Simulated scan of single mutants.
Amino acid sequence: MSRLVTSLFRKSLSKQTVHRVRRVCVYKYKPATPGWSLWVRNFSGLPDVDYTPAYVIGDDDFVSALKKDDYVIIDVRTPKEIEEGKISSKVWLNIPYDEVAGALNLSDDKFKVKFGINKPRKDDKMAFYCLGGMRSTAALYSAQELGFNRCKHFPGGWEQWVEWGKV
């Protein structure tokens, strides 16, 4: 339901704000008067989903990146969420979004011990994904602040992957 409302908001935005859409949670309630109303609240603590083209990996590019050795795909969901399934790729990591900055600040040796692969270099290609785009946006911003300049995020995330039937 929230994806539908997000897409409706996206269509109604002006050209200046088309790339930044706040993900919303929709609540239905039955008021004293007949009819249904919608209450909308913002998720707190996370940035808006960033749809700026420079930060987004397109659907086709994401699918092709999954098959490449030079693209690190980082799932920033929790381990419990990953039990439901993951997007398979040649180079895949799970780093929860709130641990991305700490993980990318580790020394090369500590990173390899913890995650089993070499630490991405600042010029390596990386793509973050989560459930629906907010946590991947936060992870993207964390990586960019550390100087990783070739990273993007897949805003559709796991929800879009499931919608495509690729599970």
Rank of each mutant, 00 (worst) to 15 (best):
K152A: 09
Y29R: 11
P155T: 07
V18P: 08
L146F: 02
C151N: 01
P96Q: 04
G132H: 06
K11Q: 10
R77F: 07
L8M: 08
V63S: 07
Y129P: 01
K119C: 03
V49K: 02
Y141I: 11
M126Q: 08
S2C: 14
V76R: 00
S2E: 07
D70K: 03
L13Y: 10
G116R: 06
K11L: 14
Y141T: 11
V167L: 11
R3S: 06
Y141F: 11
V18E: 15
E159N: 05
I117V: 09
V40L: 04
R121W: 07
D98Q: 15
L66Q: 07
V63C: 09
A101S: 13
K28P: 04
E163F: 05
D124C: 09
V91E: 09
Y51F: 10
N42G: 10
K119W: 06
W158H: 02
Q16F: 10
S136Y: 03
R3A: 07
C151W: 02
V21Y: 03
D98Y: 11
G157H: 05
Y97P: 02
A103I: 14
V113L: 15
D98N: 13
A65V: 04
A32V: 12
T33Y: 05
Q144W: 13
V167F: 15
Y27I: 15
A103W: 01
K86N: 09
R135P: 02
A143H: 01
S12Y: 03
A127P: 05
G85E: 00
F115T: 06
L146G: 03
V100P: 00
K15W: 09
F9V: 09
S44C: 08
R22L: 13
D98V: 11
F128M: 04
E145P: 05
F62T: 00
D50L: 00
Y29M: 09
P79E: 07
T137Y: 00
G45T: 13
Y27G: 13
T17D: 13
V40E: 15
I73T: 06
R121K: 14
D109Q: 12
N118L: 10
Y55K: 15
T6F: 12
D124M: 05
M134P: 00
G45M: 11
M134A: 06
Y141R: 14
L8N: 10
R77Y: 05
Y71G: 03
K110Q: 12
I57W: 06
L106K: 09
G156D: 07
K86V: 12
A138F: 03
K125T: 14
I74N: 01
Q16Y: 13
L104N: 03
D48V: 05
L93V: 06
K166V: 07
K125E: 08
W158A: 04
G133L: 02
H153D: 04
